[in-house]
Design a protein around this nucleic acid. Structure first.
Length: 215
DNA sequence: CTCCCGATAT
DNA sequence: ATATCAGGAG
């Protein structure tokens, strides 16, 4: 992909979603970390429904450790993958208390060592909570980047991330990341993407195919 | 690679 | 009925 095409994509995304932002409700780094951990294979909307009550009941790492595992499981059950997530939350909270004075560490390396926190979650926390430029590659960013030809179809999520970091100016990483999410979530959807009204459909094999069959 | 898993959209 | 949802661990 040449530079002009990439710039066209970035300009179009900015035009379509000028105020794209993190849609996981949170009021501090700790809540954000919990919310992102919960968001794996689940919609943000559902996570927000659950965290509205969850964050009233659990304010600190100690709070999550003050109840039996089974109780926490029930409190997040609607999210799915709830057994492993509940276990990870308690293990993560134990680590925060034992290693970091109950605070969320402000380094990518330390974050990924926490239970249930991988590269994608660490990137989201670093960028949204601590203002460090990052591009977290989730299901939307991966799908959109591949459809638009920003990277190759066979690329791993790490390769997708490296591609985006190479092609997007560092100071625009975080905003671009959010725009790719919005683009994937509301426009270039996994099912029934809006190819007919997509200003970038000429860049996308899938889009071209759908345009033809629509005629 | 598989497993984890309920809610929602299609 | 099936696909998908801000993935991570083993």
């Amino acid at each position: 992909m040449n530079k002009q095409t990439m710039n066209r994509i970035l300009d179009t995304l900015k035009d379509m979603f000028p105020d794209a932002h993190c849609e996981l409700n949170h009021s501090n780094p700790f809540e954000l970390t919990i919310a992102v951990l919960l968001s794996a294979q689940c919609t943000d909307k559902k996570v927000n429904q659950v965290t509205e009550e969850l964050f009233k009941k659990y304010k600190t790492p100690s709070d999550y450790l003050s109840v039996p595992l089974k109780e926490l499981e029930q409190d997040i059950k609607q999210i799915g993958l709830y057994r492993s997530k509940a276990k990870n939350i308690q293990k993560l909270c134990r680590t925060l208390l034992e290693e970091y004075g109950g605070e969320v560490p402000q380094s990518h390396d330390a974050l990924t060592k926490l239970a249930g926190v991988g590269r994608k979650t660490a990137n989201v926390v670093m960028s949204n909570a601590f203002g460090v430029p990052a591009i977290a590659v989730d299901t939307h960013v991966e799908r959109v980047s591949k459809r638009l030809g920003i990277c190759r179809w066979k690329d791993t999520v790490l390769e997708v991330e490296n591609n985006l970091m190479k092609k997007v100016p560092r100071e625009e990483w975080t905003e671009t990341h959010h725009r790719l999410i919005f683009f994937g979530r509301y426009h270039c959807k996994a099912q029934n993407p809006s190819c007919e009204i997509c200003p970038l459909s000429d860049l996308c094999r899938e889009g071209k195919k759908r345009m033809k069959s629509a005629k």
